[in-house]
Design a protein around this nucleic acid. Structure first.
Lengths: 136, 136
DNA sequence: TTAAATGCAAAGGTTTTGCTCTGAC
DNA sequence: GTCAGAGCAAAACCTTTGCATTTAA
């Protein structure tokens, strides 16, 4: 598990103060903040950072494969560390809580399905929508 | 497989001319048109229909469970018949082509995973991103 | 030094909304 | 006849962009 900043340097990205802040904020996030939220968190570290820079930074990082873009259906993009992104999401539709999981059988099955259709799998997006099982 | 219009009536929705047109257009679509495209197709049938009405209609239909909202990551919502939506999508990232598939094992596995996390599955969204296997 | 990145504000694209008028029931 | 729905244009969102200024390498 390499830090985001290290991967940026390895890719030869110019490491500005703002990019370090965005990298740090995403690295420290255990949830799935959208861009405005990243901006809010980044602003606490660097009050001068602009929203446009946050947008440009996540886009650059995504293009380099350092971050992954998620869409949960609310019209706002969310980003997460691509190294941490090797999992899927279960969305609790009652509370909005997002639970991460990963399942090797599921991964394997997806590869198999793609192959059956004549394709090589290079990625996937999966969200399970669910409600908590009530205990009694 | 019931027609969209019939399901609207069964839900007690007021069936205006515009809603019939939108229902007809979606029912006849075998691809995954976004709203602007639905509007274009609907306009051929009813040149007076407005974009706002198309937006309001798909939103209403979605709220009734008649349509399902899809997001393929381009920032535009797409809608498809919920009865036909019992499948997933494989996106050919080279051509942008979207292939529909469904796999009972996959469905079963998802139910199992949700249960393991303490949830009851009520829906899912899955997109496989893939490239064609080159033949020689 | 110098090309690349930032900040700001303005523009872009998609989706929603206020208000008046129309039409389905 | 009524009230939900339609049309229009304006507004609201999220995101991108042009340009002058700053900064990493």
């Amino acid at each position: 598990m390499t830090a985001i900043i290290e991967r940026c340097e390895a890719k030869g990205l110019r490491m500005t103060g703002q990019r370090r802040v965005v990298a740090q904020v995403i690295g420290a996030s255990k949830d799935h903040p959208h861009v405005e939220e990243l901006y809010a968190r980044a602003s606490k570290i660097d009050p001068k950072i602009s929203l446009a820079t946050v947008y440009r930074t996540v886009k650059t990082f995504e293009a380099e494969g350092i971050l992954e873009k998620l869409e949960f259906g609310d019209g706002r993009a969310r980003y997460e560390d691509a190294e941490r992104a090797h999992h899927d999401h279960l969305i609790d539709v009652e509370s909005g809580q997002v639970i991460e999981f990963s399942d090797p059988d599921l991964e394997a099955l997806q590869v198999k399905i793609a192959a059956r259709l004549g394709y090589e799998l290079i990625g996937h997006r999966l969200e399970l929508l669910a409600i908590p099982i009530k205990q009694r």
